[in-house]
Amino acid sequence: MRRPGGAAGAEHGHPVPVTPPPDRRQRKQVLLRLDPAVYEALARWAADELRSANSQIEFLLRKALADAGRLPAAPGPLPRRGRPPKSPPPETPPAHPPPPETSGPARPDGPPAG
């Protein structure tokens, strides 16, 4: 028997935008045909540098354009994929502050503290 309010209930009541944010340029999609051996070598190289094959291709193309003096003046940055960087936690004072240092009475078996 179904509950009133639909199968998902109120969990899915808010729409989520699917368009990129206005400050980011849309990425151009290109179909690329490669020799299988070339692709395998490229994929191994990408894995060695912890990149995807697609980002390795873009990295190499940008490097080749820069070396030839043909890189556009203001290309967009290479997109960073994966988990966003952790923001540092806000600094909070310690729960129990350390006891203040005091100079106590002289110890009978040694020099005075302080």
Rank of each mutant, 00 (worst) to 15 (best):
R33W: 05
H14W: 08
A41T: 12
R83A: 08
G82N: 05
R25V: 13
P22D: 13
A68C: 02
I57G: 06
S52T: 15
P77W: 01
V30N: 03
P88W: 05
P88Y: 04
K86H: 12
L31G: 13
V38P: 01
L31Y: 11
G76Y: 01
A66T: 13
A37C: 05
D23P: 00
T19V: 13
T92D: 03
P20I: 07
P94H: 04
I57E: 01
E40A: 15
L34M: 14
D23H: 15
H96R: 12
L42T: 07
P20A: 09
E101A: 14
T102Y: 07
D23L: 03
A41D: 14
E58F: 01
P100N: 05
D48C: 01
P85R: 10
L42G: 04
R81W: 13
A106E: 10
A73W: 04
L42F: 11
E40K: 10
R107W: 06
R80Q: 13
R27A: 13
P36I: 04
P98S: 11
Q29T: 15
E91S: 07
P89F: 02
E58D: 09
W45R: 14
P17T: 09
P77K: 07
P77V: 05
P100F: 09
K86E: 11
E40H: 07
Y39V: 01
F59V: 14
R107K: 10
A66D: 15
R25D: 11
G76V: 08
P89M: 06
A46N: 03
T92M: 09
L50N: 13
Y39T: 03
D67V: 05
Q26C: 03
P21G: 02
T19L: 13
P100Q: 08
W45Y: 10
S55H: 08
